[in-house]
Structures are given as structure tokens and as C-alpha cells.
């Protein structure tokens, strides 16, 4: 009985484990509820980090959060292979999950309140949201990319 429960738990958790990894972004252009592909890529496109140590990647992410153009993102937690970054602006809140491994970094939608709540979320990629979501998070992604190139 216990063995069966453990096996069931393992298989239930498996998709989550797969989702938690950063991957090369493939935008599904056939979706009806969708913002511009350009916007989606500006936020969710992977950043290549091959050859960098996990310590270097973590430092670049935190540095990128603090150096984001116009607004600093704050640490909201972490786990194996990801850092949560938060953004508060005029009563709206957005929390991004910045996933990383030895070759990629990818920003994924985690949670939001107010205007930034995602209207079409598929495996961490927000396909439909307010335009300001894409503008603000784009700056975070650019900043992290910049810090990676500065390493």
C-alpha cells in the first residue's frame, strides 16, 4: 500500500520536475488568447549560459535583479535551480521564477496580483497579459543577460 502510494506520488511529481527546468522557448503561435510573439519572447526567451559555474549564474541573476532599468527586483525565495524575483508597482505585484541550469536561464511566470495576472499561462510561459507585464519583465531579462555577458 505504502509502496503504491510512493510510486503514485513519484509519477504525480514527475511532470512538475520536468516543468521546473529551463528550456528553449517555442512559442505556440496558433493560440487564440495570445499577446504578440515579440513580447512573449522578450520575457520568456532562454538565456544561454554554457561554461558558467552555478555560483556565477546565481550571482549574475541577483545582480541583474538589482540593476534592472528603472526598478529593482527583490528576492522572494529560492529553491534548487531557481530564484523568485518580486516586483511591486502601484498596488500590482508580479513574481517571476528565474530557472537556471548549467546551460540556460529562463524567466517563468510564478504569481501575480492586480493588473499582472496572466490570462493564458502554459508551463510557466505567459501567453496573454497586460502590455506593462511584458515591458517590466523584459527589462529584468535584459538586465540578467547583461550581467551574464559581464561575467
Amino acid at each position: 500500500m505504502l509502496k503504491n502510494s510512493l510510486i503514485a506520488t513519484f509519477f504525480l511529481c514527475l511532470p512538475l520536475a520536468v516543468i521546473a527546468e529551463p528550456s528553449v522557448l517555442k512559442v505556440n503561435k496558433r493560440l487564440k488568447l495570445k499577446s504578440s510573439t515579440k513580447y512573449i519572447q522578450a520575457v520568456h526567451k532562454e538565456i544561454h549560459v554554457s561554461g558558467k559555474s552555478p555560483e556565477a549564474i546565481k550571482f549574475a541573476i541577483l545582480d541583474g535583479m538589482l540593476r534592472t532599468k528603472g526598478y529593482k527586483w527583490t528576492f522572494e525565495g529560492e529553491g534548487k535551480g531557481y530564484i523568485l524575483a518580486g516586483f511591486d508597482w502601484r498596488g500590482d505585484t508580479n513574481i517571476m521564477k528565474i530557472e537556471f541550469n548549467e546551460s540556460l536561464i529562463q524567466l517563468k511566470y510564478h504569481q501575480a496580483w492586480g493588473d499582472y495576472v496572466c490570462k493564458n499561462l502554459i508551463e510557466g510561459v505567459c501567453y496573454k497579459n497586460d502590455r506593462s507585464y511584458y515591458n517590466y519583465v523584459k527589462n529584468l531579462r535584459l538586465s540578467i543577460e547583461q550581467q551574464i555577458s559581464n561575467l
Binding site: S53, E55, K58, F59, D63, L66, K72, G86, D88
Partner: peptide, 27 residues
């Protein structure tokens, strides 16, 4: 109050970044 929370968040992030930089430089 949200601004105060955010200020604490920024300072915490700066402190964590300093630790991360030390770990990075050590490698």
C-alpha cells in the same frame, strides 16, 4: 507599508547578492 516591505526586500537582496558574489569569486 508596501514601500517599506519593498525597501526591506531590496536590502535583503543586496545582502544576498554580496554572499553570492563571495561564493562566485571563491570558485
Amino acid at each position: 507599508l508596501v514601500n517599506l516591505r519593498r525597501a526591506v526586500g531590496v536590502e535583503v537582496t543586496i545582502a544576498i547578492k554580496k554572499q553570492a558574489m563571495k561564493a562566485y569569486l571563491a570558485t
